[in-house]
Design a protein around this nucleic acid. Structure first.
Lengths: 339, 339
DNA sequence: CGCGTAACGTTATACGTAAAACCTCGGCCG
DNA sequence: CGGCCGAGGTTTTACGTATAACGTTACGCG
């Protein structure tokens, strides 16, 4: 009434709130920052809050970030959200972040689509830290030289470049898969491996080779998409040599590719061929038969990654962690055919 | 050598660059802002660039945002990234954004998980605008009262609350589906509709009812996940009354649920039952038979949404747009059984 | 009475950047 | 020869916030 409120496009600032509340800007900051215990009377505080409410005041985040020198924002670097696994990782990270008043931004299109030459230029948000999957190795180079705290997912724990390490026990996953298949009588295996270079896939291959000593094992590499998996699997299975009786895939997506190939070749699953995957995506239960797979705790992965980053930012220690996996037995595996 | 460079955790500022280059801070800003045509000599410019490179200078985004009053950041509000459709929407938006030096942040967990009471508090990045799916209606309320530019996806074009509207021609999709199925001889239909309230689903239902005048149509609503779809479809199909011969689903996820139910009930697809979906997700080609579905241009949806927002921000007009769809015929539809 | 001190605020400052306004010095033209 | 102009910078200011440092009462207490 007496004070002409700022109209139009200009948003009210803390100074505007101060003016209408009849106090200084500092007091507004104190009250709204919940830092006023014993510094401001309850009466004044209420006046300030009312004024802020009336004006529809929203603190300017850019100004706050500048003042505080931190942004409460973390960047998540993953290959692609269209891979359901990473969508879950993101969700876990975002929820954990929100619980602590943090936000999560994604590395701009690390899967090669689009320019994103300078990650800092595209993601305009300044960052407090980074959580990165080792599957996005090229994107990671952008953060070398930065002194940002870096939590590595699925990366060699002995790598000293990271502030913290978080892994999933995929070696154990491979051991359980082989144990399961060996118990069913299988002796000739095909490993359909990911062509994406990453520590986690190296570990899987090594664990598999180790667990399958004495059995027959071939390996084929393929990108993580159905079409390429199809081609790779087709080449490996359509042979006159004694065929593998079980295909172990690094990923459910690959496994579905194999399933389709098997159908095309007239092989029944699991009677003629057993198939296993990794991740336990929605795909795994959509197909028929449903996939036996190693369930990875994707959402927890994201959550713990964020928690590790928060710990680092708080100066607390963040010891390396390895999350357990679970073997989910479904219809795609069965007794080895008696050749 | 003579100037002790700032060491430790402190990042170099434009003033540090100025000092080592022997110029004023303003000059640094001019050169690095590419605004120096005719204002700074090429020799000086090179000196500045060299100094910036040596010091590893990175502009402070928070300061820049504060100064410029904009952040080159948009927020995307969608139900959940774990729905592949929205992962594609995000990708499209992010790529288009990056091309224009923009970043995209996601609304913090609008699917109900986590707190995220105040979207501004969690997403610390200040925003220039919002792109929102009508499927996240509750989250949208947070932006009422804000004068942020708002691009609505899949929302009633007559809604005046938005700065721009972008839709997908799902009515045409429904018409093509029914045309296809009627052509195959089907006369008894079941519509498995989404329980999520959204304009896009209202449009589909209306278009379907309109196209099926004279034929028999039942409707069942279900949340967009496989488990619930399973239950809903089971109840609708396990009946002694004359069974529908075709199930039209609002979504591939629902369609896969129906496919599993059919198998459970001993119905062959498509001999006994035809099934159609919407979206054309990876799921659609993973299952056997592959799904006949209406392909929605998800990535383009995100891209155009971002472009519309950019237009609004530039003060240009952003007329409402409706994107075309495509019917993809696959194995899940076939001639109606002769009852 | 005098002084510490608690209660309640205010004033002043800094964060790092972009850009408007200003300065200086030759050269050129009328 | 005086004034104007443009090239090539510099000085200064503002963005909105958080907080350290600083006042000003009033009151309790030795």
């Amino acid at each position: 009434m007496q004070t002409p409120e700022p109209l139009g496009g200009t948003r009210p600032t803390s100074r505007d709130v101060a003016r209408t509340a009849g106090v200084s800007q500092a007091t507004v900051s104190l009250v709204l920052g919940e830092k006023w215990r014993g510094r401001v009377s309850e009466r004044t505080a209420e006046t300030v809050r009312a004024a802020a409410r009336d004006l529809g005041y929203r603190p300017n985040l850019a100004a706050r970030n500048l003042r505080l020198g931190r942004t409460r924002t973390a960047m998540l670097v993953v290959p692609a959200l269209t891979n359901e696994f990473f969508a879950h990782v993101y969700t876990g990270a975002a929820v954990a972040a929100a619980r602590h008043g943090f936000g999560v931004v994604l590395y701009p299109s690390p899967d090669g689509v689009g320019p994103a030459r300078d990650p800092f230029a595209s993601a305009q948000a300044a960052l407090d830290g980074v959580i990165a999957s080792s599957m996005a190795a090229d994107a990671l180079k952008a953060f070398r030289g930065t002194d940002l705290p870096l939590v590595m997912l699925d990366s060699d724990p002995s790598d000293p470049g990271a502030s913290a390490h978080l892994n999933i026990d995929v070696a154990d996953g491979m051991r359980r898969v082989t144990e399961h298949l060996l118990g069913l009588g299988h002796r000739r295996f095909l490993h359909l491996a990911s062509a994406v270079p990453s520590w986690t896939f190296d570990v899987r291959a090594a664990a598999l080779a180790d667990a399958l000593r004495g059995a027959e094992l071939r390996t084929v590499r393929s990108p993580l998409n159905v079409a390429d998996a199809w081609t790779a699997a087709h080449a490996a299975l359509d042979t006159r040599e004694p065929r593998p009786t079980a295909v172990i895939c690094d990923d459910d997506i690959l496994a579905v590719g194999v399933l389709k190939v098997a159908r095309r070749l007239g092989l029944r699953v699991p009677e003629d061929l057993s198939i296993t995957g990794f991740d336990d995506l929605a795909l795994a239960t959509a197909v028929e038969p449903e996939l036996t797979t190693v369930r990875l705790p994707a959402e927890e992965f994201g959550r713990r990654g964020m928690e590790a980053l928060l710990a680092v930012l708080a100066g607390e220690p963040a010891p390396p962690v390895t999350l357990p996996v679970e073997l989910v037995r479904r219809g795609s595996t069965g007794p080895a055919p008696a050749v």
